[in-house]
C-alpha cells in the first residue's frame, strides 16, 4: 500500500489551538499543501493576522511574521518590496481584513502588490468571543446583536470578493468554501491559482474561504457546516470573480 494522504510537511508538528471542528485547520492544510506542491515553501514568508489565526506562525513550516490588527497587507507589501524574490502571503480573518483592515486590503489591491491573501470569512469575531463582524449575516445572532443583525442598524454584510474584483490591480479573486471534500478540492485549486498569480508577477490575488465557527455559532462542527451551506453560501456565492488569464 502507498500513502495517498498524510499531514503536509508545510505544517509544523505543533497541535493547533483551534476548537474541535474549526475549519481554520482545513484552510491551513490547503495553504501548506499548495506551498509544498509549488515547491516554494522554502522561499515563502507568511503574515499572520490578529484573531483566531494569530498563532498561525507556529503552524506554517515557513518564515512567518505577525502583523498588527488588519495590517497584514501593509506588512506583506514591505516584505515583498524588500525581497521581491520571496513568495509572500497573508492569512486573515473577517474581523481582521473586512473591518479594521478594510482600507489596507483595498489599497493593497489598488497598488497591485504581488502578494496573495487568504481571507477566512466565518461571519463572526472568533477570538474575542463571538461579536458581530462586517460579514455577519442579516438575522444572525452574535453577542453584540442578540436579536440578530438588523439591516437598518448595521447595513448589509460586506462582500469583499465582489468589491475587490472591481479593482484593476487585483488579478485573481475567488470565493470558495470548505464544507465538503468536493468544495475543499475546489478551494485548493483556487489557492493554487492565486499563488501562481503571484509567482507569474501578475499582481494581487485573494481567495475568500467561507468558513465555520462552531463555538461562537453555538453549534456542533457538523451542524455548523450545514448552517454554512444553508445560509452563508446563498449570500456569498462561490466562484471565480476575477482571473487575469480570462481577461
Amino acid at each position: 500500500m502507498s500513502v495517498v494522504y498524510q499531514k503536509s510537511r508545510g505544517l509544523t508538528d505543533v497541535s493547533t489551538h483551534y476548537c474541535p471542528g474549526c475549519t481554520h485547520g482545513i484552510i491551513h492544510k490547503l495553504v501548506a499543501e499548495c506551498l509544498v506542491e509549488l515547491d516554494i515553501l522554502e522561499k515563502s514568508i507568511g503574515v499572520a493576522p490578529v484573531g483566531c489565526a494569530v498563532l498561525a506562525y507556529d503552524y506554517f513550516n515557513c518564515d512567518m511574521q505577525e502583523a498588527a490588527h488588519g495590517r497584514a497587507p501593509a506588512v506583506g507589501t514591505g516584505i515583498k518590496r524588500v525581497q521581491p524574490d520571496k513568495f509572500v502571503f497573508t492569512y486573515q480573518g473577517d474581523g481582521d481584513l473586512a473591518s479594521i483592515g478594510s482600507n489596507e486590503i483595498v489599497q493593497v489591491a489598488h497598488r497591485g502588490e504581488k502578494i496573495s491573501t487568504i481571507f477566512v470569512n466565518n461571519a463572526i469575531y472568533g477570538m474575542t468571543g463571538g461579536q458581530m463582524a462586517p460579514t455577519t449575516l442579516i438575522g444572525q445572532k452574535t453577542t453584540t446583536c442578540q436579536d440578530g443583525r438588523k439591516e437598518e442598524l448595521a447595513g448589509k454584510p460586506i462582500k469583499i470578493s465582489e468589491m475587490l474584483a472591481t479593482i484593476d490591480g487585483a488579478k485573481y479573486i475567488a470565493r470558495v468554501s470548505v464544507d465538503s471534500p468536493a468544495h475543499i478540492r475546489q478551494a485548493k485549486k483556487a489557492i493554487m491559482r492565486a499563488f501562481q498569480t503571484q509567482l507569474e508577477g501578475k499582481g494581487f490575488s485573494l481567495v475568500e474561504v467561507i468558513s465555520s465557527c462552531p463555538t461562537n455559532w453555538g453549534k456542533s462542527p457538523v451542524e455548523a457546516l450545514n448552517w454554512l451551506r444553508d445560509n452563508m453560501i446563498p449570500y456569498y456565492p462561490l466562484g471565480v470573480y476575477k482571473d487575469w488569464e480570462a481577461e
Binding site: M1, V3, Q6, T16
Partner: peptide, 9 residues
C-alpha cells in the same frame, strides 16, 4: 482540520 488522518491505498 487537525491533519490527524493518514490514508494508504
Amino acid at each position: 482540520p487537525d491533519s490527524a488522518i493518514t490514508v494508504e491505498r
